[in-house]
């Protein structure tokens, strides 16, 4: 089935892309890999008059370490993030989450910027980027700005982007030294599905085994990907036993705002948060995963 016709624009500079995006009668959409936008057009959810491809902006595709920071161009492919030695060594949590997105062919096309801009609540990379306290670089006609990932998601499929703005890069601060981290996803239909519940966590233990830095990111459990600050507070400063881990998982289930959909009911999601937060935290405590 053909896509509803649109004019394709392929700018080769960022200013040209911003120009193409701003003054227009009708609707303009950006396309990166197309794994989200193309099905949306095909399903009639959006009907853009103009589609602006970012594929001729090579500076947007970089995956590069800059000092202690990871610089990801918005057009960096999920497959490249997963396989880049730089990411696997320095940001294993992000590599692990990128590797869990859908299937190989989707990861070859899909980009990190596209994933964030689609603002899917059940994103795999978003909980990892929330734990890593990444920042989103945004370009607009009036200049650039930086938005912490935690402020980037505003609501159901809604981001902090203003009309005419383009996400150009994701900056990921260094993973804390000695951190243990992991990403687990539970799917109710098939292994390559988006997560019913996705859990990313990163913990740093002090010399006595207490968790002095605890970060938990959740996908699929609220209208947007979220951090779980109450669950983190239960664990901070603790050398958690099983009961404390269960209490943290319970706190996460309570602070989530799950929706019901075809994959599962809100109640089922809450129960799965309890299970998967506890499982991941237990494996981090017991040293099954490390950064």
């Amino acid at each position: 089935m053909r896509l509803y016709p649109f004019d394709l624009v392929e700018p080769d500079t960022l200013p040209a892309a911003l120009d193409a995006l701003s003054p227009l009668d009708g609707e303009a959409r950006l396309v990166a890999g197309g794994t989200a936008l193309v099905p949306m057009i095909r399903l009639g959810l959006v009907k853009p008059d103009r589609v602006i491809s970012l594929h001729r902006l090579p500076e947007l595709a970089e995956v590069r370490r800059d000092g202690g920071t990871l610089q990801l161009g918005a057009m960096a492919r999920l497959a490249d993030i997963d396989t880049a030695p730089t990411v696997r060594e320095g940001w294993p949590l992000l590599a692990e989450a990128a590797r869990r997105v859908a299937t190989p062919a989707i990861r070859v096309s899909g980009t990190i910027g596209g994933n964030l801009c689609y603002a899917e609540a059940a994103s795999d990379p978003a909980p990892a980027l929330l734990c890593l306290e990444a920042e989103v670089r945004v370009a607009g006609a009036a200049g650039g700005r930086t938005v912490p990932v935690v402020d980037f998601f505003r609501g159901f499929y809604e981001t902090a982007l203003a009309p005419g703005e383009i996400v150009t890069a994701i900056r990921v601060p260094a993973t804390p030294a000695g951190a243990r981290s992991g990403y687990v996803k539970f799917t109710s239909r098939s292994a390559e599905d988006r997560p019913l519940v996705g859990v990313a966590a990163l913990v740093v233990r002090d010399s006595s085994g207490r968790w002095d830095d605890v970060r938990i990111g959740l996908g699929g459990v609220a209208p947007t990907p979220i951090r779980a600050p109450r669950a983190e507070a239960v664990l901070r400063g603790e050398a958690p036993g099983d009961a404390t881990l269960r209490a943290a998982a319970e706190a996460a289930a309570r602070e989530a705002e799950p929706l019901s959909d075809l994959m599962g009911s809100a109640d089922y999601r809450r129960e799965m948060i309890r299970v998967w937060v506890r499982r991941l935290l237990t494996s981090l405590r017991d040293g099954a995963r490390s950064a």
Partner: peptide, 8 residues
């Protein structure tokens, strides 16, 4: 591998 139905 790519999905021919998704890639422009």
């Amino acid at each position: 591998p790519i999905r021919a139905c998704l890639v422009l």
